[in-house]
Design a protein around this nucleic acid. Structure first.
Lengths: 210, 210
DNA sequence: AAATGTGAAGTTGTTCACAGCT
DNA sequence: AGCTGTGAACAACTTCACATTT
């Protein structure tokens, strides 16, 4: 049986769902009750037809002649994305970037909470004052199982990234946001999202060249 | 005249170039001199044909029957990406995420240096000890011109993101790495790369749902 | 009349198959 | 013989055109 029981949905469409959700939140804050695909698409920076097509992957939510109910559409997107309830996330690798992300407070409002940090050498890292508890790697499997954590932020050095990933997978983690510049090898049912800030800059660098 | 005098290159191909470069650096560190498209592709997590196709956008760099020269291919990619020399980058918006990125030391080895930070209210932000000088927004145009800065990291609150973007563009910035969850409106010759960490988590969240 | 939902057409990006070097 | 380079086939994604609903 394939992983894709879900009617095949383009990954890009799911990304845009996140964008739409943010736009809807702003509209809601401005007191708007309904919005047309044209208006929402403009706010999201896409074509109206794309917005409508994206939504049809998940059902029908609009009213012809009228548009979409802001509240209702927000709710449905949150529901689809699984961000209706605060989801616990762990962070592994409390180095430079890791500590930076631990002190970043932008996840909570979006439905994610970094509930704990893990590192191979917790003594050396104690200096930094963190909001989250910091544990040794061996505490990982227990913590993940007990708290039912599904997602992890991986900010370890590249040379140990695969090894740590194996531990994460063995502990039951099924989603990894990977900051190490390496293609992690994971089982089919585990999802990896690669994020590389330097790479984003390189990409910019290329496209702005004279 | 179109912006695309450059033979149209898929943006994704440029991203992959960054991936290849990192793989090549590891190979070089391991003492390898040449590499086949198959080996490099495996390391990068893509198909060999895709790697070869990507490279042909920029020229011919391999030797048939032999493969690619690691050193030479690295050099050509760095050159294409414009990361041969250290590029100065500024950061605007020294809030939570902004300070986190300022303390992140992962850019320098990749060819980028955050040379200064800017904020609308530098007095309130003085508390944090930064490696980089912190200036008021009004110092921006002068600094950018004087130092020839081309790229900026934008980490201001979403409600002022567009306004600050306009200032950046007016000052001569042509590449923006935008962390605010909003589609910035910029002239055609300015490039924006959107990065949203919460969105990456949402995306993960969707795909790992049972 | 206004705006959604959607099959079909069009576009872009990926993979194949094999010709062409070394 | 081995491996790259590439036109052609294929697949994925986007846009169009318009039927459909309120």
């Amino acid at each position: 049986m394939k992983k894709t029981d879900r009617p095949v949905i383009p990954r890009k469409a799911v990304y845009r769902l996140s964008v739409y959700l943010r736009c809807l939140q702003r509209l809601k804050a401005n007191g708007l009750r309904t919005v047309s695909s044209e208006a929402l698409a403009r706010a999201a920076g896409v074509k109206p037809t794309q917005l409508r097509k994206d939504l049809t992957y998940f059902g029908q939510f609009g009213t012809r002649g009228l548009g979409y109910d802001v509240e209702q559409l927000s709710a449905m997107i949150s529901d689809v994305l699984g961000t209706n309830s605060l989801q616990p996330v762990i962070l592994v690798g409390v180095g430079n970037l890791g500590s930076a992300l631990l002190s970043y407070q932008g996840f909570e409002p979006e439905g994610f909470e970094i509930v704990a940090a893990f590192d191979a050498d917790i003594k050396r890292k104690r200096s930094t004052k963190l909001r989250q508890p910091l544990y040794d790697m061996e505490a990982l499997p227990g913590f993940v199982k007990e708290r039912g954590v599904k997602m992890a932020v991986l900010t370890v050095p590249v040379n140990v990234a695969q090894e740590v990933t194996n531990q994460l997978v063995a502990s039951g983690i099924s989603g990894i946001m990977n900051f190490a510049p390496i293609m992690l090898i994971v089982p089919e049912d585990v999802m990896v999202n690669n994020v590389n800030l330097a790479m984003e800059l390189e990409n910019l660098s290329f496209f702005i060249q004279p």
